[in-house]
Simulated assay, not measured.
Amino acid sequence: MIDMSPKKILLVDDELSVINALRRCLRNEGYDIVHANNPFEGLRLLRSGTIDLVISDHMMAGMTGLEFLKLARDRHPDCVRIILSGQADIQTAIDAINHGEIYRFFTKPWNDMELRVMLNLAFEQQRSERENRQLLAQARNRVLPTLPTMPSKPPRLPSIVRDAQGAILLTEEGDSEVAPA
């Protein structure tokens, strides 16, 4: 089942001019856009509802964008995460991808067309991943009920004894009767 509701994007940046520029870039794309002026407000908005994608500045007071997006990943692993940075530091980009599992790293200023195309690709990948998880869950629900259930206790092993003539006899544990082998 494909969700046709507008995708919800959270913008997190301590510069209102950046938030406004992102809103202008995305205003005709049909997204539901919310914003936060700091990472703590961003975390509150993440808790308050379903956010499909987060675009966060990197250098913010109190918490870096990478730290914020790591928390977002831990709490909302299905949410796509993008980082913006005015500093094109290669190590920050590597850390963002490796530690924060960031979908994309953009430098400021960004190219509006590239950002819009990348968001479409991110949402397509997210849709595919969600659909795959649903199909996997459906397949598991169909297969698992048909599997035999394991007994709660392991089966008892027979004891091996010999009778007076030396014949081997098998008995169940605790049985006083002996069954011929």
Rank of each mutant, 00 (worst) to 15 (best):
R23S: 11
R81M: 02
S48V: 12
E124M: 08
S85F: 03
R27V: 04
L22A: 02
I82G: 00
S56D: 03
S17Q: 13
E67S: 13
N120Q: 13
P158T: 11
L169F: 12
P155G: 11
N120W: 04
F40Q: 09
R104K: 13
M150W: 15
M118E: 11
A36V: 06
A139C: 07
F68T: 05
T171F: 01
L119K: 00
R142Q: 06
D78F: 03
P39I: 02
L10H: 01
K8N: 04
D89P: 09
N120H: 10
H58P: 11
P109K: 09
E172L: 12
R104D: 00
L144Q: 02
D95C: 08
T146W: 03
E15N: 12
S159G: 08
F123T: 03
I90K: 11
D13K: 04
A93T: 10
S128G: 00
V34M: 05
T50L: 09
P39G: 08
L66P: 05
L22K: 02
A36P: 03
I82N: 00
P6Y: 11
D13Q: 04
G62P: 11
I160Q: 04
E67H: 08
M60Y: 08
I19K: 02
S128L: 15
G166S: 04
Q134R: 14
I51W: 00
R81P: 02
D175S: 08
T171C: 11
S85V: 09
H35E: 10
F40C: 01
R104Y: 08
S56E: 04
V161N: 04
E29H: 01
A167H: 14
I168A: 00
L115W: 05
A36W: 02
L135T: 04
D32M: 06
K8S: 09
T149K: 14
T50V: 10
R23P: 06
K108A: 10
A72C: 06
N98M: 11
A88Y: 08
L16Q: 14
I9H: 00
G100N: 07
L119V: 08
H76F: 05
E173Q: 12
M4K: 14
L119E: 00
A179S: 09
F40K: 06
L136E: 07
M4D: 09
E177Y: 07
E131R: 13
R156S: 14
L170M: 15
P77E: 10
N98Y: 10
I51M: 03
P158R: 10
Q125V: 13
I94C: 04
G30F: 07
L66Q: 03
L22Q: 01
Y103R: 03
L11K: 00
N28G: 08
L43I: 05
I97A: 10
L11H: 01
L169K: 06
S152I: 15
A72Q: 01
C25M: 07
L26Q: 01
I168P: 00
I168F: 10
N37Q: 07
N141R: 09
G166M: 05
F68I: 07
C79S: 06
V34Q: 05
T149E: 15
R44I: 11
L69S: 02
Q126F: 04
R47I: 08
E173Y: 11
E172N: 09
G42T: 01
M118L: 10
G166I: 08
A96V: 09
